[in-house]
Design a protein around this nucleic acid. Structure first.
Lengths: 228, 228
DNA sequence: ACCTGAACACCGTTCAAGT
DNA sequence: ACCTGAACACCGTTCAAGT
């Protein structure tokens, strides 16, 4: 699909025309990702996107209905980078860990997409649907009852989205400053955190929470069979 | 604190002046909340905020450095609505559930504040620090080792933030549409979800994930004593 | 069908000038 | 110290006009 995106389909037009700027969803997605890589999401404006594609901003609206549509294109592209290969190969708990780590790491670098993933229907997001299909099959193979799979996946995803934010939290996010004397137990707990500051904090909390949720899901589930 | 916000402190000025529009953090917070209640976060602009306070937009910048500061004021105010009263009264697991439900429900109605909570330091956010102090004391009372309390709280919060988004997801978010035939297992799991569509889905996933994480934290913790 | 150019209705923020 | 008024540098989006 989309393989002929670069091929002009109007060869019957007479020659001698100025070269046509052939826009497409694929080219828009690629250009958007390049802008984000260079300048972050503040650099992803419709004007900048159009400029990078050598068209007028209004030309974009022949291919997307809104900037939200552009974000959905980028989101779906990135969902293809989430590693689902462990499902059906590794034991369920291990596969979930690999998937969750990959999922969090991909979107920790794309925080503005989290509301897009969390709130927009998956319709016309093929890579996202493919990801969910692989995950569902992994749960089914582990004997998960099918009426609770989506709830379990949603719970895990909720934790993953929140954890993606946490990756980007500054090291001093829990520094109470001058108000520390009024919250002595909290301030002490922050100080006594295993390795306070830095990204290792986010990893410690993520690993702890993920292990806990996986263990809890295993304990409360009514799975029929198990590949572990 | 802030009790004299409405009282003019320049009584020595001679009379006969036009009435002064006394701005303050408290008045800005209240006006911002009112705008959000009326129109949502799209209605919270610096211009609208200024208008509702009968000042020029530029006047706001004598009290806040940016719109982010306004959002932080609102966030801290709302954090005071999170119910922490169960800590030290109910058993730990029950107290966490009450706190988590309250926390999620407060911010499900204020999604744009989630990046603010997740990424901005708690310095000068007194209600937020007060909330963390109560939670920390609840964990300590349940025998939680102090070097793992913050990680556990961060893990729970990450899940809460993601779940707040999920409350606002449309009922058809997992409708694959025309792509359903390419993801048969996923589409079937969506159909077989206990009560597909509506907000009860979000509640089912939230309850499942929260129970799992609490059970998992209890199982893997090295708590010394326990009030349960 | 797809693009251009101009315009529209906004944003958050700055700053000289007032009192 | 705190406010006004004007301006700045943007945004996303629309639409008549072209080819």
């Amino acid at each position: 699909m989309g393989s002929a995106a670069g091929a002009p389909t109007h060869a019957r037009r007479r020659a001698g025309r100025p070269p046509q700027a052939v826009l497409s969803s694929a080219r828009i997605t690629k250009a958007a990702l390049k802008l984000v890589s260079a300048d972050g999401y503040k650099g992803l404006t419709m004007a900048a996107l159009a400029k990078s594609l050598n068209v007028a901003p209004s030309a974009l609206y022949n291919h997307v209905r809104s900037k939200q549509d552009v974000l959905l294109l980028v989101e779906d592209h990135l969902m293809g980078r989430v590693d689902v290969t462990a499902f059906g190969v590794e034991p369920w708990a291990e596969a979930v860990k690999i998937w969750a780590h990959s999922y969090r790491n991909v979107f920790a670098a794309h925080l503005p997409l989290i509301p897009v993933i969390a709130l927009l229907p998956v319709t016309n997001a093929p890579a996202t649907i493919t990801m969910y299909e692989a995950v569902t099959k992994g749960f089914l193979a582990a004997g998960w009852p099918s009426d609770s799979i989506i709830d379990a996946v949603v719970a895990l995803e909720s934790f993953i989205y929140g954890s993606a934010y946490d990756v980007n939290a500054p090291a001093d996010i829990f520094d109470a400053g001058s108000l520390a004397p009024q919250a002595p137990h909290f301030a002490a707990a922050v100080t006594q955190r295993s390795n306070p500051g830095g990204q290792s904090d986010a990893n410690a909390a993520f690993t702890l929470g993920l292990s806990a949720m996986i263990a809890g899901l295993l304990a409360t589930s009514t799975r029929v069979s198990d590949t572990e």
